[in-house]
Design a protein around this nucleic acid. Structure first.
Lengths: 339, 339
DNA sequence: CTGAAAGCGCTTACAG
DNA sequence: CTGAAAGCGCTTACAG
């Protein structure tokens, strides 16, 4: 207990071997006799030896570090993703550096500055775009980049097909006979043009058109993601349609839908009797609120992204796929019914 | 763009100065002429230089790394905490290593093994206990330990007073005239005896006794934390009391309460007309569900824990408090009413 | 203000 | 199987 940090040299001395041998024994490399290895291990244990990761990395060149960059760790989607990611990365003995970046300027700054460069072997960006220029810089610098929960430029990704998810939701409503359908879209002011949104919105438009309905702008409202904003959007839509509410509403995410449900309740409208509600995610509370939704397994996507990192680092046999589309599935509950 | 990783030596050569001077200029230490500094900076920029963090740490001895250890990153409470933490740590230019540890064995393993030792300056444990023995080991090894969201052995902490939170909730019910009050308690099988639970439970007992009511075991049920388990607990309690439901229920957390609300609804009981519900947290959805709750600001607690880390690292003037008790506040909404 | 040199704690060819 | 030595890329007294 004397020395808080015994060094390899201490261990070697204690075991009566050279530095080189001690190092080999500890890393169980080939070419160390069983007896010697045992001696070294015993010395290490007794001295409470722990290798200095910095020295190891400096000497070996390996980094074994990956950056996980998220814009909103406090939101359900991101927590799930990070959880899934961390599990496989930690299992492979990689350190996970968590970076929380806010707005676009923050991200640019982050991607341009030091941290992402020589510090990590890979950076996983969770649900935000990296432009081609930045991607190239990172690549030049030796860091692989992987996108989880949304793709943008040309690098490996894992995410759901938003158009598919939106179509499942919309198709469900249309099949139930709905034609006057509103939409509450999610929107991130910090990432204009993020494809998640447009995929879901296109599905809305296309599905309506497929049944001969022209989308009505008064039935559509977009608000910032986050659990509390759906209510305001719902109110806005209701206010914009004094001639009567839509018979159904397609919401871009469950968290937004929770707010919409509240708004409807407060306006005296019953779900699903007066208006049906369907959204995307299958947040744990969706079940509690009997919300029909298109489910995605975000933690699983995180795990896949983690595997991709292992592939790029060569830790894992198997080619790196250029992209993985995660499955989605309609979960019908009590918030939707036929007209 | 040629060399993906220019070294300090490259920069020095390019600028026509020595290694030492280049280093000083880059770290804007004293004793470098403006002209020299400019030359070095220009060279660094041109070469796209980024210091090797490993080498810097090895040479300087500083680690600037802190481990954040959480048992359930995917839960609301933990996401909030990590978000708050990350923000202040990142601002101080500390790297945040995220470790997700599951059950007790996992944690023991983690705390005993390498990662926590020479790799980090501090470890922040989020809402789980570290025993005195482990704490001493970490201290010996030079890593400070700080508890966020619950204290246990003798190290700095930040958390709410669970007894106070529980008392606010219970007092509210009692003041509304309730006497037949049920309780749904949270429980983590991986951390038996966690004080959060007992503080809230003691408040339940004491408040009841203070109005002359003897706690009735048939009105109490404990379930694992997590959004979906509250419903089962509520059903259990209802089943155990065929003579009629309690007039109110105190739930240990909002997520649990969401389930309880669903169960009550499914049993045809109206909230608050038939039974009042109060819980703890002020989860964003609590507002949407009109749930009366005792609010705590978890992200703020995370920020405080981050400051504590800065204090221990000497980055911040001001003594390290031995503990901070975060405020709680009763938020009355529509899920409670007088009997 | 600037430089030469030692050292941080490991790993890894290169010899034996 | 084992050791001596160079090197990873920085920082920091110590001289000048």
């Amino acid at each position: 207990m004397a020395s808080p940090t015994a060094s390899l040299a201490d261990v070697a001395r204690h075991a009566g071997v050279s530095l080189a041998t001690a190092s080999r024994a500890l890393n169980d490399a080939y070419g160390v006799s069983t007896a010697t290895r045992a001696k070294v291990l015993a010395a290490a244990t007794e001295l409470d030896y722990v290798a200095s990761p910095d020295a190891t990395r400096l000497a070996s060149g390996a980094t074994r570090r990956v950056a996980v960059v998220v814009p909103h760790i406090e939101r359900w989607f991101f927590g799930q993703m990070v959880g899934g990611l961390e599990r496989v990365l930690a299992a492979a003995d990689l350190d996970v550096l968590l970076y929380h970046v806010g707005d676009e300027a923050d991200r640019r700054d982050f991607l341009t500055r030091l941290p992402a460069r020589r510090k990590v072997d890979a950076v996983i960006v969770v649900a935000f775009p990296v432009d081609e220029d930045e991607r190239q810089r990172l690549e030049l610098i030796g860091a692989a980049i992987i996108a989880a929960g949304g793709q943008s430029a040309d690098y490996p990704y894992v995410c759901i097909d938003d158009y598919e998810a939106g179509s499942l939701a919309m198709r469900h409503l249309v099949d139930l006979g709905h034609r006057r359908i509103a939409m509450i879209g999610g929107l991130d002011p910090d990432q204009p043009g993020w494809p998640v949104v447009s995929g879901r919105s296109r599905a809305y438009d296309d599905t309506l058109k497929s049944v001969g309905v022209e989308p009505d702008p008064r039935l559509v409202h977009e608000v910032e993601w986050g659990p509390t904003n759906g209510a305001a959007a719902m109110h806005r839509i209701l206010d914009a349609n004094p001639d009567g509410p839509p018979t159904a509403v397609f919401v871009h995410s469950d968290e937004l839908a929770f707010g919409a449900l509240q708004a409807l309740r407060h306006r005296g409208l019953r779900v699903p009797d007066d208006v049906s509600v369907v959204s995307i995610d299958d947040h744990p509370l969706a079940e509690l609120l009997d919300l029909t939704t298109v489910a995605q397994d975000v933690a699983a996507q995180g795990a896949v992204a983690g595997q991709m990192v292992l592939s790029t680092l060569g830790d894992r046999p198997g080619a790196l796929p250029s992209g993985v589309t995660a499955p989605v599935e309609l979960r019908v509950r009590a918030s939707t019914r036929h007209t």
